[in-house]
Each structure stands twice: as C-alpha cells, then as structure tokens.
Amino acid sequence: MTSHNESSHTDSGHTDSSRNEFWERVNAALDARRDPLEDARVQQLLEREPDLLDELAALQLTLSATRDVTHSASLAHAPARRRTSAFVGWAALAAGFAAIVVAARWNAPEPRDANATHPAPLALAPLFAPIPPGVLLELRATFTRTSPSGVRIEHVDLVESRSSVERRELGPQGQATLFAFAHHQPRVRQP
C-alpha cells in the first residue's frame, strides 16, 4: 500500500514536471518563431502525455486566430514595429488565456459518474476553423419528406446563401392537387 502511494506520488510528480517541461519548451519554440512540434523533446513528451496534444492544438488555433486578427490590423497601414509589438501582445494574451484554461482544467474535479457529459475544453467557441470560403466551392443541403399525401422539398444553398421550399400534394388517387414554390434569401442556417 505504501509502495503504491509512493508510486502514484512519484507518477504525479513526474507528470507535473513533464508538463512544466513541455510548456517551457513550447513557449521557447514559439518565442523563437519555430513550430513546437519540430522539437524532438516536445514530441517525446507528447508521446508520454497524449492529453497535451489537445491543449497544444487549442493554443495553436488561438494563436493562429490572433495572427489573422493582427494581419487584418496590418492592412490599416500600421508601422511594422507596431505590428510586431501588437502580435507579441496578442500572442502573450492568448497564451495567458490558454494557460488559464489549462489550469482550470487541471483544477476541475473529475466527473463522479462515468456516463456524465464530458466537458470539452474551450467548448464556448468553435475550436476548429470553418472551411474557408475560398476552398469551399459548393455546399448545398436538400431535405425531402415523402409521404402518401405528397412531397416537401427544401433546398438550402449555404455558399450562395439562398433557399427554397417546394411542395407537391397528391390526391387520393395519386393525382397532383397542389404545387407550391417559395424562395428565401438569405437564410439563418449558414455555415
């Protein structure tokens, strides 16, 4: 029992030191404008602690979003030095936010019930970027409900931002009794 406790204590300490080392190396790589995943030690630590991958992905996506914001700001003819300092500021802010999120996850109690809903990190905002408009050439959805009394077809074009609804009602002998078509633009259901 004693050895088990010592062992778990040692594992916990080992995990903490690994995490600390991991984030130190990631921060160092980001400071040096290098990809943290190119660091061999980071790769080793990721193999040991796969959960870190999730957190690193969240941090990288936050940073990339910040870079986009900074890039947009640079279009407003800001001086180069100001752009760089803005980028560093945003990156530091994002890193701080990510650190708070990670710390909150560590301190959060484990769910009591195994069937309880597992809260995903950063669940308030989409983690993965939407498909960029330049690469999304086409995205259409069609919803059809067929019944003995007729057909209702709804077309939604998510790229062109328009939709339409078509209704065909049939009589008792299968003869067409109604045809209706409505066109909507725009529509709330957007990508």
Partner: peptide, 10 residues
Amino acid sequence: QKLGVDSSSM
C-alpha cells in the same frame, strides 16, 4: 459545439 466545430470545419 461541444466538439469545437461549427456546421462545417477543416
């Protein structure tokens, strides 16, 4: 939303 995805993602 729990998965971190809007209606479509890359």
